[in-house]
Design a binder for these strands. Structure first.
Lengths: 153, 153
DNA sequence: ATCGCCGATGATATATTGTAACTCTCAATT
DNA sequence: AATTGAGAGTTACAATATATCATCGGCGAT
């Protein structure tokens, strides 16, 4: 790994607090709905689709929450780096350290769906420079690896 | 770029011939429908969705071609390396050199949709080894970069 | 030859994922 | 009290993807 860089990986309530701080710092409100969606997303152990989240929040809150509300809020979260979208799964995952910005790499297990995330700045900056070398202005690298996790292997 | 490696990039009829050879080598038939879909896909200048292809083939052939047939054939093509799926666009692109196997990197312009493909074995093998180092057995790296192409920049 | 099998395709239906347009509510401000 | 604007709800729809069963045509075995 390139630059080490120790994350203290907050979980549960502590993670929500960190997420809230980040979101508010960007001028957005931390509403009840947003908190519920964030906590639900963080509670999944693998990437969740907007519909998974809508269903879980509906059940937990005892009232119907529509998918489009979930999408709005997920988009906001992705923009604020509180969550990431896993493109090859059409699903979202909470960001364990919203305060620090990385291009990240997801390892997605095709058999159990577990998705882990690694940081490797040497690789991601290599991808960015290769794109630049081709006359392209990179905005968002999408680097995901489909395969088998250690447990399923 | 790592290992240079000259592709003679076939186009049009020549590309179809190469695709046909590759597909038949893998024990599959090159049917009229498959040829039409391949040629249609190759005719697009940017990634095409299964529905785009279904529509174009329907128009060209004067009969209705259903999306699911297109999906079946695209899956076959992807499996045989005749086409690639661009995950972040939910779309497909013809592979200009079906006879040689690469992990490839797509540069997708968010403004015009143009998608170019680069090969860089140093990067892709770096991604594979990073995944392996994390106890993961990589099968298919998905490396795409969203951004702006030289023309739109 | 004809019967049955099989791969390819067609037809239909449905599931999943994602957007658009408009409304409602509530709280801050005027 | 009226105005405004952000957040959330409602409804409708579009786009992407899969499942199931039917049909057709070739081809080998009887």
């Amino acid at each position: 790994m390139a630059a080490h860089h120790h994350h203290h990986e907050p979980q549960g309530a502590e993670l929500s607090t960190a997420a809230r701080a980040t979101l508010e710092k960007s001028g957005e409100q931390w509403t009840t709905m947003r908190a519920q969606i964030f906590e639900t997303l963080a509670g999944f152990d693998k990437p969740a689709s907007a519909y998974d989240i809508a269903e879980a929040v509906s059940k937990a809150a005892g009232r119907r929450v529509a998918a489009n509300s979930v999408y709005r809020i997920l988009d906001l979260f992705v923009g604020a780096n509180l969550a990431r979208r896993v493109e090859s799964s059409n699903a979202y995952i909470a960001n364990a350290h919203p305060d620090c910005l990385h291009d990240c790499i997801f390892l997605v297990c095709d058999s159990c769906g577990q998705t882990t995330h690694i940081d490797n700045d040497r690789i991601t900056s290599g991808v960015r420079s290769a794109a630049e070398a081709a006359g392209f202005s990179p905005v968002r690298p999408v680097i995901e690896v489909r395969g088998k996790c250690a447990d399923c292997d």
